[in-house]
Amino acid sequence: MSDLVAILLAWALVIGGLGAYGLWTITRGKALAKLVPEDRQRWMTTETTNTETGKGESA
């Protein structure tokens, strides 16, 4: 294994691995959100203290 391959592999693993995991949380969140009533989705609403702006841009 050349040095370059080793370096690229290590970087790709960490960035790719964690990135894929992050994307998975997003898609899984979207899928689950469809099953949960609006009023129970804390991060979608503006009233909750948890988030400042919430998100008005609901589709």
Binding site: W11, I15, I26, G29, A33, W43, N50, T51, K55, A59
Partner: peptide, 27 residues
């Protein structure tokens, strides 16, 4: 763009910092 149910302004900012920072680290 469909809204992302698991993100908030906090995480969006964290995400932006992560991506920009990652670019810096790569550089």
């Amino acid at each position: 763009m469909t809204p992302n149910p698991t993100s908030s302004s906090t995480t969006r900012n964290l995400g932006i910092v992560t991506i920009l920072g990652l670019g810096l680290v790569v550089l």
